[in-house]
Design a binder for these strands. Structure first.
Lengths: 238, 238
DNA sequence: ATGTTAATTTGAACCTGTTATAATATTGTT
DNA sequence: AACAATATTATAACAGGTTCAAATTAACAT
């Protein structure tokens, strides 16, 4: 799945056109205040400290307003994410020639961003794994998909990945890996230092299963390398 | 992760030894009533219909009792699972000679059991993905691990999987795949018919990344086969 | 300006899971 | 039979997310 920001997703172009009467302006401002308050509260008190009543008070708004404006607490948490502008800049500097390297770099960048701000992103990922309602569509959209599909398609074009494997499903399976590793991180099963190596290990294994023979060497090396790192981390932890 | 029952896990040997005075007997009976009521409620009204007040009333106990006996709602849902005796019998009939086939068969059996009783198992898997507290240890225990580790170890012994890959991490990565596919099923992204093929596809990809050259042929076939089935399902759904 | 209409905010609820309290019943022991 | 230990009960309360009728406000027509 892997989450992205508004610019990459292109859904919150609120800073453009539209007459934007006083009504809409006030609404937008209230929305902004709520998001800001939510971000602050998450940063300060972590996941648990974000109560709707506290949030409403901090945003200077009634308890019902966040519901009118966003719909649910989960939607607010996800909106906080949408408001984070960082991914786009980082991803645009992806300059690896090797198509598989590019995939691993992109994953690394994501992880780096997430781990750098655990309070926010743990909360956010917890919201992603919430099974109660389906706000997943917010995260799982066309532009986000296009980015990863592009990386995989490039690898296919370069002859790194066989043409017989479904690009769509390869992407989905890689995504599954990533999501569950995030979950393990959120709940504390996986220490932060292990997130990178664990992801690389999984991606390398799976990509090796999809790659052409001549590209399996570097992937094997990556598998062994990440295993080594994971062992070191466990030894250090125990 | 993949969940198993009490016999396989070997944690609820309540039918053995222990003086089991009247006091403990009454406790056990109340526990049983609560579990039965919970299962009924889940079956009837699905995940959402399981309220602690309704549950207590149906079990004929006070609201506080389930908390004394189990600790939390989540613990009760997981206890309902532990009470399901089915896995052991099914798994004991695993008689594939090919070590990789055995892995796929085991996964198939699991999926079959889950899909046959969606109400119960969707609720249960939703509880697994709950990030609030860590009852995960209940599901993630030594005996369960031993089973899957055994299957993988056998594949290594048979020369199907290279000795250089970490068996522990291969298991974990396969587990990640399985869990996220379950999640997608629970939230309705993945239709039931697609669960089996999707899991096989992911497992085959990853195992192919870990297998020795002479075993990659059948795995490739499995990848292509499951892709084909997934395409058919999507075509039928759209 | 003024009244009308429709959208938005509000405060008070409702329903959750969970915990604390005191009172009551049940068991194990003498 | 009487006592102490233990568990359940009933009840209330708390904090959380969410919803709803009523009040308020902005936009519009006159």
């Amino acid at each position: 799945m892997t989450l992205m920001n508004a610019e990459m997703i292109g859904e919150l172009d609120e800073d453009a056109e539209a007459p934007l009467g006083r009504r809409e302006a006030g609404k937008a401002e209230r929305r902004q205040r709520i998001i800001r308050a939510a971000r602050e509260l998450i940063r300060e008190t972590g996941n648990a400290g974000l109560s709707m009543r506290v949030l409403a008070a901090r945003a200077g708004v009634s308890l019902a307003t966040p519901y009118n404006l966003f719909g649910s607490k989960r939607a607010i948490v996800l909106a906080v994410l949408q408001d984070v502008r960082e991914f786009h800049d980082r991803f645009s500097h992806l300059r690896a020639t090797d198509p598989l390297e590019r995939i691993f770099s992109a994953v690394d960048i994501q992880i780096e961003i997430y781990l750098a701000d655990p309070a926010i992103y743990k909360t956010m990922w917890a919201a992603v794994f919430d099974t109660s309602d389906d706000l997943r569509a917010t995260l799982w959209n066309a532009k986000r998909d296009a980015f990863w599909r592009g990386l995989i398609a490039a690898a296919v074009e370069a002859g790194a990945i066989g043409r017989e494997v479904s690009q769509e499903w390869l992407q989905r399976q890689l995504d599954h890996l990533f999501r569950c590793i995030m979950l393990d991180w959120v709940v504390g099963i996986l220490p932060p230092e292990a997130v990178g190596p664990a992801t690389q290990h999984g991606y390398a294994l799976m990509l090796k299963g999809a790659c052409t023979p001549e590209w399996s060497g570097p992937l094997t090396a990556r598998i062994l390398g990440s295993q080594l790192r994971l062992d070191l981390i466990r030894r250090a932890g125990a």
